[in-house]
Nucleic acid binder design. Structure first.
Lengths: 115, 115
DNA sequence: CCAATAGTTCGGAAGTATAGAACTAATGGA
DNA sequence: TCCATTAGTTCTATACTTCCGAACTATTGG
């Protein structure tokens, strides 16, 4: 099993970030991580949408968030601890990411959970 | 030929916007439209990346931007006049879109044209 | 050392993107 | 009026992605 890859700042692209967040499941995961500002393991998100996700699918989603540079995942025993890289990204991308998180959080509270 | 579809505000989603802007060609087109704040026809962007795009591909890209709610295209004679819907979107999405445009514009000036 | 748990990888089916060719639609002359 | 031209769309085949079940790896606790 290859080790988890976390791109350095200079390898992170705007396109990659936007792509990662353009999926309804991934943006939900990321916004929850960013808002909570705590670490959560992957399977905590198995029920992120109303029909439970297969774990292979969830694993792919985390990989995409990770390789876009949005989250960091560290193995802790048998689980992965995931947390957002918001703070790091602020220097390079300014208010972009927090603006996305905020816009999404706001819509969430207006329109119901979805999907 | 079916008429061009422009979604009303309440049909525009964050995921759709992020997806539309996650493509290197589309984000370049959109940022240019948003920054210039003027109308440009589609073929003005044939050379938006260093190898000229086929016009069928470009047409698809414009369709995706349009149906994501990011631009408005109006037929004017034989051409389409395209302009961004930034102003309209501000009410619903706050500073999200301008933050993306700004982040991208800034990186453009740092790293060379690309792709 | 075995069983259990958490996550990854593989592979095939289903969906999406790209770009050439054929098409439509509007215009500006002869 | 009709033809040529220009701008953009649609069609279609091929190539690429995504999704998810099944099989795998890795860590831990008993």
């Amino acid at each position: 099993m290859r080790p988890l890859y976390h791109p350095p700042l200079e390898e992170i692209t705007i396109e990659g970030i936007l792509y990662a967040l353009s999926d309804p499941v991934r943006i939900r995961i990321f916004v929850q991580l960013a808002n909570a500002d705590c670490t959560r393991n992957c399977s905590a998100f198995l029920n992120v949408c109303d029909t439970p996700l297969p774990k292979s699918t969830l694993s792919q989603h985390f990989k995409i968030l990770r390789e876009a540079g949005l989250i960091r995942s560290e193995r802790k025993g048998v689980e992965l601890q995931n947390h957002s890289r918001c703070a790091e990204l602020k220097d390079t991308f300014g208010p972009m990411i927090s603006a996305i998180v905020q816009a999404y959080s706001q819509r969430m509270t207006i329109s119901p959970p979805l999907r």
